[in-house]
């Protein structure tokens, strides 16, 4: 039997959004062992990690659809529905990029040149760190809803987002350095490989870009 008091409450998007960002982060995190395996040339192992990436990406996608389904236009929320959907979208894109880049590397069995391998792994690590910081920030969403997006909690989230920005800036710098490093050795490499190396770096770097956009979205929520 339905009860009117129960039905008044729409499904809260807060927990699912926090869950989604966690899945997206777990997805990007798989890139670390994936690239370690790829650099070592262990394609069997890389394949396993790529499967995990796909698994997480798929999970994130399903949850994204589920959340959208439970956010009808008739919901009255403390923040605009569009902003939450936008947040969900950029969270999801972190996972998408992880899937794209791992697919590209595995499909072409790309070897990252030894000269840049160490720097490249650091670059991946920092991108994953950005996703992790995005997760940390989004996980404050329930507290933000509790406090009505104001006061001490809002300031705390602002700090978290600032840290996220710092990490993203760092990945930009690492990305520029990597490009320069490839430029220095590209005459020794197969041209097609070089093109795709640039592409891999670009895609990986977009994880931090998306993480930063997660931060932007959170800030937008605070400004309402």
């Amino acid at each position: 039997m339905a009860n009117m008091l129960v039905n008044i409450f729409g499904t809260s998007p807060v927990q699912p959004l926090e869950q989604h960002v966690n899945i997206a982060y777990q997805c990007t995190k798989q890139l670390i062992p994936f690239f370690e395996a790829a650099i070592a040339g262990d394609w069997e192992k890389a394949k396993e990690h790529r499967a995990a990436v796909e698994q997480y990406e798929h999970e994130a996608d399903n949850l994204k659809k589920e959340i959208r389904k439970h956010l009808p236009k008739s919901l009255f929320m403390p923040v605009p529905r569009e902003d939450l959907l936008e947040l969900l979208l950029v969270q999801d894109k972190m996972a998408n990029r992880a899937k794209d880049v791992s697919g590209l590397v595995l499909g072409r069995k790309m070897r990252i040149p030894d000269a840049i391998a160490k720097d490249f792994l650091l670059f991946v690590q920092r991108n994953v760190d950005a996703a992790k910081q995005a997760r940390k920030s989004v996980r404050e969403l329930d507290e933000l809803f509790t406090t009505g997006f104001r006061g001490a909690e809002a300031e705390l989230v602002e700090e978290l987002v600032e840290e996220l920005d710092r990490i993203e800036t760092e990945t930009d710098q690492l990305q520029a350095d990597l490009r320069a490093a490839i430029f220095r050795i590209e005459s020794h490499l197969d041209p097609v490989t070089v093109i795709f190396l640039y592409r891999v770096i670009e895609l990986t770097g977009e994880i931090a870009d998306m993480a930063e956009r997660v931060g932007r979205r959170l800030e937008l929520l605070l400004s309402h």
């Binding site: 039905n7 008044i8 809803f145 009505g148």
Partner: peptide, 29 residues
């Protein structure tokens, strides 16, 4: 009493206290 309680819940919602209120249900009420 129930409608009064519903009104009170909406009041909390107006103060940005509730994650999501389904306005369709409010309309049905």
């Amino acid at each position: 009493t129930t409608h009064t309680l519903v009104g009170a819940v909406l009041g909390v919602g107006m103060a940005r206290g509730i994650d999501a209120i389904d306005l369709r249900v409010v309309g049905r009420i």
